[in-house]
Simulated assay, not measured.
Amino acid sequence: MADGNIYMKNNHFYAMLSRMKFINRWGLMRNTKNENICEHSLEVAFIAHALGIINNQEFNGNINAERLAILGMYHDVTEIVTGDMPTPVKYYNPIIRNAYKEVENVAKDALLSGLPEKMRKEYDSVLMESAAEEDLWKYVKAADKISALVKCIEEKRMGNTDFEKAEISILKVIENMDMPEVKYFMENFIPAYKLTLDESN
């Protein structure tokens, strides 16, 4: 029984996942409503899944949309350990970016240590971007930016001007991605985010 208790104490992976709701994003910005990484990750999963479906149905692609949803769900999990680092800080220069990547790797290993050994390989490839799935991660990154744009739209609708410049810079990044699936989503689905509930109905 004692050995079993020690083993159970080490199985902290899913308990750590439940703490995603305590990690807020946009730490340098004045928010009318805080957004945590749990909320953000679900939205990224929705959008990444949609981009995969759009690719397959509108552009004759062959993408595993369900895998995109899984990658989206887990794409920010290491922030349970690292916290959310504001984008202007994270990308300030290559030295900071490379150092943060190392910290992310340490965080990933710490989280994986909370799983039984034989389960770890199933999660290793979803906690951080991998070269083997580089093509899929491109869609997750696009979904991440679209989710950030949605946050800007929501804050602006509440009269918060702090997000105006963020919206401009995020839109530029999205446009520079030059992905037809992203353009399709932007043209067909983003306008609805600017409507009230009554207008949507």
Rank of each mutant, 00 (worst) to 15 (best):
L42I: 15
L42Q: 13
E43P: 03
A45T: 08
F46W: 14
F46D: 12
A50D: 07
G52H: 01
I54Q: 01
I54G: 01
I54W: 04
N55R: 10
F59L: 06
N64A: 10
M73D: 00
H75I: 12
T78G: 00
I80C: 05
I80H: 04
M85I: 14
M85A: 05
T87I: 14
P88K: 10
P88R: 11
K90W: 05
P94N: 07
P94K: 08
I96R: 09
R97D: 08
R97Q: 11
R97A: 08
N98R: 15
N98A: 12
N98Q: 15
N98D: 15
A99G: 08
N105K: 13
N105Q: 14
N105L: 08
D109H: 07
L111G: 02
L112K: 04
L115E: 03
L115D: 00
L115R: 01
E117N: 09
E117K: 14
E117L: 13
E117C: 08
K118V: 07
M119T: 10
R120Q: 15
K121D: 14
Y123V: 10
D124Y: 01
V126S: 02
S130T: 15
A131C: 08
E133H: 02
E133S: 01
E133A: 00
E134T: 11
W137C: 00
Y139I: 00
K141Y: 11
A142L: 03
A142M: 07
A143F: 12
A143M: 13
K145F: 13
I146T: 04
A148F: 02
L149C: 06
L149S: 08
K151S: 12
C152E: 04
C152F: 04
I153F: 06
E154W: 06
E154L: 10
E155P: 02
E155A: 00
K156V: 07
M158S: 12
